[in-house]
Computed example of a mutant assay.
Amino acid sequence: APPAPPGALAPPAPTSAGVRPVLAALAPVIVFAVSRQSQVLVERFLAAPLPAGAISHLNYAQKVAQLPMVLSLMLCTVSFPVVARALAAGDTGTARRRAERDLLLAGVIVLVGAATVVAAAPQIVGLLFQRGAFDGADTAATAGVMRVYALGLLGQTLVGALVRCYFSASRPLWYPAAAMLGGIALTAAAGSAFAGPWGARGIAAANALGITLTAALLLLGLRHQSVPLDARRLAGGLARLTAAAAVATAAGQWCAAGPPPLAVPLAFAAVTTVFTATACALRAPVVPSLVRSAHPFRRLAKARS
């Protein structure tokens, strides 16, 4: 770099006073992220004494079962700047409506995916992995763990979506990190109790319990935060969507008994159809509007106009 001209002021050196506010703002986010990722360490620690192959079954099951969660959280990731801008402008009404809509849409996506995973878990695992040393016994064990993991997918999605509402605020919030630590404590305690009698499935069940507790704590705490979500209305809507997913799971499991190459697509088609019909019958939120917007005649009319 060229030397500074005579008389020019040197750039100010970074001081600890300027770094401290940044660290204070990032600390809650870092603690939350590290705590959430430590769930995997807790599971692997509990699975270490189990018979050979248990950790592999957990790994395979977790990676496949979490795909619906990843798809559902894409929606919340895209809308996060919208919520943040609305809060910065003081428009809490827009932030609340967008956050509630995104939570319910994410719930629809993850529940359809979870129902498909539970209905066709052996067929999915067999299609993806059953070759070579990965035999039928591995498929059955992985599918069993994957079905239990799927029970916590709604909680996983809600945690990933709700935390965006907390971290959209201008001030650092420690509540999400505390809720996550509470969920990890439950995962560790339940996993220690369940791993002995139920093995890898017990650890997966502990994971589902812990993350569901964290989601419930985050949902309850939002009433006191910058995005004033209606926790009771959200819980009621998610309960109706979950009931529709339970009915759809039974239909998907019946269709998954078909020919192996078609079992997974048939199960997914059955789950989607029955979930949509049941959700509309139960007057669940979001789904009826999605059906109306997807009507081919409505799309054609909009295109002509």
Rank of each mutant, 00 (worst) to 15 (best):
R36G: 09
V117C: 06
L173G: 00
L173W: 08
C76G: 15
A301P: 04
L229G: 09
A150L: 02
A141K: 07
A277L: 15
T273K: 01
P261M: 07
F45K: 03
P5F: 10
L219E: 09
L58V: 06
S192P: 00
G202M: 09
R85F: 07
F268A: 15
V286N: 02
R283N: 08
A204W: 02
R147Q: 11
E100N: 04
A95Y: 08
L67N: 00
F268R: 08
G182W: 09
Y175A: 15
L46W: 02
V274L: 06
D91S: 07
A205N: 04
I211N: 00
P6Y: 04
R201V: 10
L128V: 13
L290K: 07
I109H: 00
S56V: 12
V264I: 14
V78L: 15
A119R: 07
A114P: 05
A161P: 03
A279M: 02
F268M: 15
L186M: 06
R240S: 08
R101F: 08
G152F: 03
L290S: 05
L219M: 14
G221I: 13
C76N: 11
A189N: 00
N207C: 08
R147A: 11
G7F: 09
Y60K: 07
A257H: 15
L151R: 00
A10I: 06
A267F: 12
S38G: 06
G113A: 09
A204R: 03
A33N: 13
S168P: 08
L229I: 13
A140G: 02
L262Y: 08
V125L: 08
A106R: 04
V70E: 03
A4S: 14
A48K: 13
V70L: 12
R298H: 13
V117R: 02
R201F: 01
A263M: 09
L238W: 06
L67P: 00
C165E: 09
L103Q: 07
D135R: 05
A161C: 14
L162A: 10
P49Y: 03
F194P: 06
A17C: 05
S305L: 09
P3K: 12
A24E: 10
A200K: 09
A284S: 01
L9I: 10
L111S: 01
S293T: 04
A10V: 14
V159I: 11
G160P: 03
A106D: 01
V31H: 00
P3W: 07
Y60D: 12
V42A: 09
R96D: 03
V125F: 10
A281L: 15
L219W: 05
L173S: 10
R299Q: 13
A95R: 08
N207M: 11
V31P: 01
Q66E: 10
A215D: 02
Q62N: 08
L162Y: 11
P21N: 05
D230T: 07
P3D: 15
A279Q: 02
A13F: 05
L75M: 12
R304I: 15
V264N: 06
L181C: 13
L23N: 03
L186C: 07
A65M: 12
A140E: 10
P3A: 15
